[in-house]
Simulated scan of single mutants.
Amino acid sequence: MRIAVIGAGALGCTFAALLDRAGHEVVLVARGAQLDAITASGLRLTGGFGDWRTRQLVAVPALDTPAELAILAVKAQDAAAALAEHGRTLDGIPVLVVQNGLDGVSAARAALPTSSCFGALSIIAASYLEPGSVTVTTPAPTYIGRGAGEPDAEVRRFTAELAPAFPAEAIGNFVGAQWTKLIVNQLNALPAITGRSVQEVIADRGLRMVMTRSMREAVRVGVARGIRFGSLQGLSDRNLRLFARVPALLGQMLPLRFAARMGSVPNPGSTLQSLKRGQRTEIDFLNGAVVREARLAGRDAPVNAALTELVHEVERTGMFLSPTEVLERLAR
């Protein structure tokens, strides 16, 4: 299958390399040093899915030829620009949106009314910290679907096409699963604020409690918005609602469980990776999304609002905060 991957960050490169290894004809849209490195030497994949250097993959600065499937793997804040730039080439082509946050599929559908758009939630943890190379720190499944119902025939067909390249599963209640992934993505803010890995943040008792509070707040906002959380990474509607009700000290078991699954290889989280590359983060579509949804429900989300602002502060200043500073700022 001829597959176009738009976005050459950690996940986009991971998918592109795995699809190339599986024998698909892959075109990867990349820019700058990333484009130069891949054009010169191919794309190197290491880590949890094994080692591979691409053979047939072609890297281009812009997509100018149609494909049988397009995978949109840019950060949420870059999606509108990418859709506008490539809209003519994507016209009528099925588009799989691999994106954090809640609005990726609906935004693609609005920009591409003649295309069939559906979504993917990837639990893969990957790091891209140098051009032409990506390392998978946590191999995990990718969940594909759309809407609140069961997966339709097209979703199942493309999932079956992609599954030989990487673990993929068609799921129902994709909207609810997006909310569950939003809870998982609460792992990102504190590493970005402190410059520490996810594991280091969770190992710190004070920071772990902040993360627990932000997750519980996000679950409560989802409940207030009438969401039935989708089953994802061992989480479900039932256990997330229970997590939001039990004492916070007990709730710390959830981030501890995430850290155990990650293993010992330091996971910087996608938001910290963006900061280290000098790029804007997608925090407004993660913790910021919780704040917006809370307002729609007539509620406040003070922990998520504070974390969003602290990430923006680090973006502006380039200075990370110590755990003590974070706790002092949140106590104000």
Results as ranks from 00 to 15, higher is better:
F258G: 07
A259D: 15
R261Q: 15
S274M: 07
A289N: 01
S236A: 08
P302M: 02
T308M: 00
R196T: 06
G195C: 14
G278A: 05
S197A: 14
I202C: 08
Q279N: 15
R196P: 00
M262R: 09
A259L: 12
L286I: 13
V311T: 10
S270D: 01
R213I: 07
T281W: 07
G288S: 09
P247N: 14
L232I: 08
V210D: 08
M211T: 10
L242D: 12
S270G: 02
E293K: 11
S270V: 00
P266A: 03
Q252A: 11
G251V: 04
T271Y: 09
A203V: 02
R241I: 12
I283W: 04
S274I: 00
V291A: 07
G195R: 09
L235T: 00
A203W: 07
L275K: 10
P255D: 07
F258Q: 11
A224Y: 00
V201Q: 05
L310F: 02
R245L: 15
R245V: 13
V219T: 01
L307I: 03
S274C: 08
F243D: 09
P247C: 10
Q273R: 02
A297H: 07
R245E: 15
V210K: 05
R292V: 04
G206S: 05
L207E: 12
L310W: 02
R257W: 06
V246G: 05
L235E: 01
N239R: 14
P302K: 02
A294H: 06
P247Y: 14
M215C: 08
V314E: 07
E200L: 01
A289P: 01
V303P: 06
S214A: 14
E282P: 01
V265C: 09
G278D: 04
E309V: 13
L286G: 06
A248D: 14
N287D: 09
L249D: 14
G288Q: 09
A259W: 08
T212V: 03
N239T: 13
R213A: 15
F258H: 13
L310M: 15
L232C: 06
L207W: 07
A289G: 02
T212S: 04
S197M: 12
A248E: 15
N239M: 11
F229N: 05
G230A: 08
L240C: 03
A305D: 14
M211A: 11
E217A: 03
S236E: 04
D284V: 00
R205G: 08
T271D: 10
A224L: 02
I202L: 05
P247F: 11
V198K: 04
R245N: 13
L249M: 11
R228H: 11
N304T: 12
M215E: 09
R261V: 12
L242A: 15
V265R: 15
M209K: 13
A224R: 01
R261E: 14
E313D: 13
L235H: 04
I227Q: 05
P255F: 02
Q252P: 04
V223S: 11
I193H: 07
N239V: 12
